[in-house]
Computed example of a mutant assay.
Amino acid sequence: GSEDFCYMLEQRPGCYFLLGQADDAHQAAAHDTNYDFNDAILPMGASLLVRLVERRLSAAGAS
């Protein structure tokens, strides 16, 4: 993967990760004219981000 996110990371700490979304109906890669975002993964992605924040806040409070 290649995005302009690297420029943001030069200014602030962060990370870049990929969340797979392929299933029988969603096989096209991003930037393909047939690409269709798999809305079914939205709860999984939101949950992942919430858990990352919770862990970070928990670790900050333990210090």
Rank of each mutant, 00 (worst) to 15 (best):
G1F: 02
G1T: 02
G1V: 01
G1H: 04
S2V: 10
E3C: 10
D4W: 03
D4L: 05
D4G: 07
D4P: 04
F5M: 11
F5I: 07
C6M: 03
C6E: 15
C6W: 11
Y7K: 11
Y7H: 15
Y7S: 10
Y7G: 02
Y7R: 13
M8V: 15
M8K: 14
M8S: 10
Q11I: 04
R12G: 01
R12M: 02
R12P: 00
R12N: 06
P13R: 13
G14E: 07
C15L: 15
C15Y: 11
C15Q: 12
Y16A: 06
Y16R: 05
Y16K: 06
F17T: 05
F17Y: 07
L18D: 07
L18F: 15
L18N: 06
L19S: 05
L19C: 13
L19K: 00
L19E: 06
L19A: 07
A22E: 15
A22K: 15
A22V: 06
A22P: 00
D23S: 09
A25F: 02
A25D: 14
A25T: 03
H26E: 08
Q27M: 14
Q27S: 07
Q27T: 13
Q27G: 03
A28R: 02
A28P: 04
A28F: 01
A29L: 12
A29V: 05
A29I: 07
A30L: 15
H31M: 03
H31T: 01
H31I: 03
N34G: 02
N34R: 13
N34A: 11
Y35W: 04
Y35N: 00
Y35T: 00
Y35A: 02
Y35C: 01
D36W: 01
F37P: 01
F37D: 00
N38I: 06
N38S: 10
D39F: 05
D39I: 01
A40Q: 14
A40T: 14
L42G: 04
L42F: 11
L42D: 06
P43T: 06
P43Q: 00
P43N: 05
M44I: 08
M44D: 14
G45R: 08
G45E: 08
G45L: 10
A46C: 12
A46Y: 08
S47H: 12
S47C: 12
S47A: 14
S47V: 02
L48A: 13
L49I: 11
R51A: 09
R51Q: 14
L52W: 01
L52G: 01
V53S: 07
V53E: 02
E54N: 12
R55G: 12
R55S: 06
R55V: 07
R56Q: 11
R56M: 15
R56E: 10
R56P: 00
L57M: 09
L57K: 07
S58C: 06
A59W: 03
A59Y: 02
A60N: 07
A60V: 01
G61H: 09
G61V: 00
G61A: 15
A62L: 11
A62W: 01
A62V: 04
A62T: 13
A62H: 11
A62Y: 05
S63K: 12
S63L: 13
